[in-house]
Design a binder for these strands. Structure first.
Lengths: 201, 201, 201, 201
DNA sequence: TATGAATGAGCGTTCATTCAT
DNA sequence: TATGAATGAACGCTCATTCAT
């Protein structure tokens, strides 16, 4: 086979990306190192030049994925924007995440593993959101918009409540049409403000 | 080995139970068919007399587990009891579920797989709860206690919000001390009633 | 492939024997599990039904080999026979051992590893001989034939001296014609008796 | 990496020494070419500029090692010194050799391979000693001190007898306290002279 | 001379599944 | 119904060696 050398960083990224895509599609156990290198058309040994083990790529790939994601979400939350707008951005981004993930799932061969991974990732992301959202709620308390006693608990409840709406149906393959108005109403309640006030914050 | 014949249904149940226990403890990939039959002291071939494949037992085992669980929870919800009491029962049962599952995890060898499985199961159970809780909320609307516009959405939001509080910290190994009063407060808000009224329903 | 079942003991022995032969010929590292099962015409998985690892067969094979050998030699030494006869028997048996081992060495591909293994085995056997020979010398002291001060040291010296004569040339591929008379003469000296007396013991 | 050019002979020697050290410590199979070049901080390809294969360095390294050793021993034997002194020097040098080799063995990871290599080296050295010792014995015959019929056989027997005393216990990790007086006594017997006379030669 | 990314065959091992008894 | 020896494909991983630069 013709030998194509590439800068290490680039090769490493290639492998990482191929691995992530396959892990997302098929899960850890149904993805072999052979699959990963086959996708790149390189020798199996090359994989081990860049990663010490399959486990290592797995960790690296998931970390990159969830961290990127959480970073995007956190940035959106912290941007100067009305509270409602923040909620909407998060919801949209979550929807994009699910869509991306489903797009990767081209066949249903390894559905079970894929769902597991997906759950894990989205749960993880949800957990990572607790901190920044708590910060926003604290700020809202400070500004006198809300009078929440336990901001972290409220943040957690809110995030998972919304997560449930997005993720709620079994296997989330046919998601119910998502109603933003509903989210606003429930959020207003959880925060203890009227919908009208919420829209002004 | 001495050959012990048993009625098919009983044998099938034995295998299913052994499999479930091992899957719960070690995850799918770290449980071999050999492990399952070893636990029962029967021959490897016997397994295939009752199940077409390992995948089949897996599905059967998980289905049995989550369905049993959801059944218990649904029964608790439908029992005649104040609404607050229902919420408390669900919270407690969830806690028991996590504890059981953690108890099964005697070593930390397969922690990653265990967490995945655990997420999957508890998410599944949460999804199964949507229907009965929706029923309860509808009833509460009918009785004039609440005026919810979309009972299913509210049920979903409520269940996942509580789920998040129980499950919210990363890897949920050291769960934050759970505060029931907080749940009551948030639930009251979501339902749009005062805490005092909620306690009377 | 047609499936031939055998009693476990028999199969185990087959595998052990094939493994020993290959280890003797090629050394540990140049013998693959695939080689072993290929020789028997069975599936690779079967190997692991009988042995937990390649290392395990290796240990079992060498133990069997050296122990058998040392047992044969010890028996010869302890048989009631003139001392000279004992020496001769040991010498002959050693020669047979070397011959067997060389016979196994059909090609010279892995000469280095073969020699290593061979050295190791024969050294081991020599070491195992120290004890019984010490016993014989002690008996000779008791009967007044000899007056050795340190029987174990003398036994060790004698055994390795003879071992050297048998093994002395480089790579022991072309062994010098072995002269029993010479052995008798040197033995007599080491024991501090005349050759004539030695022949009478 | 910065590119450092060196005179070929020097580089070759560097590689050879690094290889020898690793082979001595870990054995052939547990030393990779990558290990060798890593120790020198040079590229993998460079290795193949100086040696055609790993096997070739191995042979070269061992040859250098045993030849050096035998040379030192031969020199000691040929120096003008009482016969007893020669024996003692050889014994001591052997002891140093074992000690060096054991010192290299910092961990017990590759004990088995290390023992094999050690056996091989020391046996080899013992074989290389046959020639010079034969020369000494011949000289002693000439001077009328001894009347040995077959000097080479006697030399072999003597060397291996002493070798056995040094090496005799299993795995030679805890060597028995070595008794020089015993060596003198046995040597005297093999040579057919009294201990007193031996000390005067 | 020297680099180091890339190759690819081979290894030990696991395990779901089969089948003769 | 039940046994358990046997199968064989697949897996993660290693490493001596090559070659474009």
């Amino acid at each position: 086979m013709t030998r194509i050398s590439k800068p290490p960083k680039e090769r490493r990224k290639e492998i990482l990306d191929a691995a992530l895509e396959l892990f997302l599609k098929n899960g850890y156990e149904n993805t072999s190192v052979a699959d990963i290198v086959a996708r790149l058309g390189v020798a199996q040994g090359l994989f081990y030049y860049y990663f010490k083990s399959k486990e290592e790529v797995y960790r690296a790939a998931l970390e990159q994925y969830t961290d990127d994601f959480a970073l995007r979400l956190t940035a959106l939350i912290l941007e100067d924007r009305p509270f409602i707008g923040k909620i909407e951005m998060v919801v949209k981004t979550f929807e994009v995440m699910f869509a991306e993930s489903e797009h990767a799932l081209m066949d249903t061969l390894h559905l079970a593993e894929h769902i597991e991974l997906d759950n894990r990732l989205s749960l993880h992301v949800a957990q990572l959101l607790i901190e920044p959202v708590t910060g926003v709620l604290r700020e809202m308390n400070d500004k006198g918009f809300t009078r929440l006693e336990n901001t972290e608990t409220t943040a957690t409840f809110l995030i998972f409540g919304i997560y449930g709406l997005l993720h709620g149906d079994l296997e989330h393959i046919h998601r119910i049409a998502f109603d933003t108005a509903e989210v606003v109403r429930l959020t207003a309640r959880v925060l203890g403000v009227s919908e009208e006030d919420l829209k002004r914050i």
